[in-house]
Computed example of a mutant assay.
Amino acid sequence: MKLMRFKVLLVSTLSIIPLLANTSEIVTSPETLEARSLVKAFGNNLKHVLKTSMKSGGPIKALEQCNMQAGPIAQEIALSSGWDIARTSLKVRNEKNSPDEWEMTTLTQFEKRKAAGENLKTMEYAETVKEGDKLVYRYMKAIPTAGLCITCHGGDISQDITKKVKSLYPNDQATGFMVGDIRGAFSLQKIIN
Rank of each mutant, 00 (worst) to 15 (best):
2 K>H: 07
3 L>I: 13
4 M>Q: 11
4 M>C: 05
5 R>A: 13
6 F>D: 09
7 K>W: 09
12 S>L: 15
15 S>V: 07
16 I>T: 09
17 I>Y: 08
20 L>C: 08
20 L>D: 08
24 S>R: 09
26 I>H: 02
27 V>M: 10
27 V>R: 01
28 T>G: 05
29 S>H: 08
30 P>D: 08
31 E>P: 10
34 E>P: 06
34 E>S: 07
37 S>N: 09
39 V>I: 04
39 V>M: 02
40 K>A: 13
42 F>S: 05
44 N>I: 13
46 L>G: 03
46 L>R: 00
46 L>P: 01
50 L>V: 13
51 K>L: 12
51 K>P: 04
51 K>E: 11
54 M>K: 03
57 G>T: 14
64 E>A: 06
65 Q>N: 15
66 C>P: 00
66 C>N: 03
68 M>Y: 05
69 Q>R: 10
72 P>W: 04
73 I>Q: 03
73 I>Y: 07
73 I>D: 00
76 E>K: 14
78 A>M: 06
79 L>S: 11
81 S>A: 06
83 W>Y: 11
84 D>M: 10
85 I>W: 01
85 I>T: 04
90 L>S: 15
92 V>M: 04
95 E>N: 15
95 E>I: 15
97 N>I: 06
97 N>F: 06
98 S>W: 01
99 P>V: 05
103 E>D: 12
106 T>Q: 00
110 F>K: 03
114 K>T: 06
114 K>Q: 12
120 L>D: 01
121 K>C: 07
122 T>H: 12
122 T>Y: 09
123 M>T: 12
123 M>C: 11
124 E>T: 14
125 Y>Q: 03
126 A>K: 02
126 A>M: 08
130 K>C: 07
134 K>D: 15
136 V>F: 03
137 Y>H: 15
137 Y>E: 15
139 Y>I: 01
141 K>Q: 13
142 A>H: 00
142 A>Y: 00
142 A>P: 00
143 I>C: 13
144 P>T: 05
147 G>E: 11
149 C>L: 07
149 C>K: 06
150 I>K: 11
150 I>R: 09
153 H>D: 01
156 D>W: 05
157 I>A: 07
159 Q>V: 06
159 Q>P: 03
159 Q>T: 07
160 D>N: 14
161 I>K: 00
163 K>N: 14
163 K>Y: 08
164 K>D: 02
165 V>S: 00
167 S>W: 03
167 S>M: 09
168 L>V: 14
172 D>S: 04
174 A>Y: 11
177 F>E: 01
178 M>N: 10
179 V>H: 04
179 V>K: 10
180 G>N: 13
180 G>L: 12
183 R>C: 03
185 A>W: 01
187 S>L: 02
189 Q>S: 15
190 K>S: 11
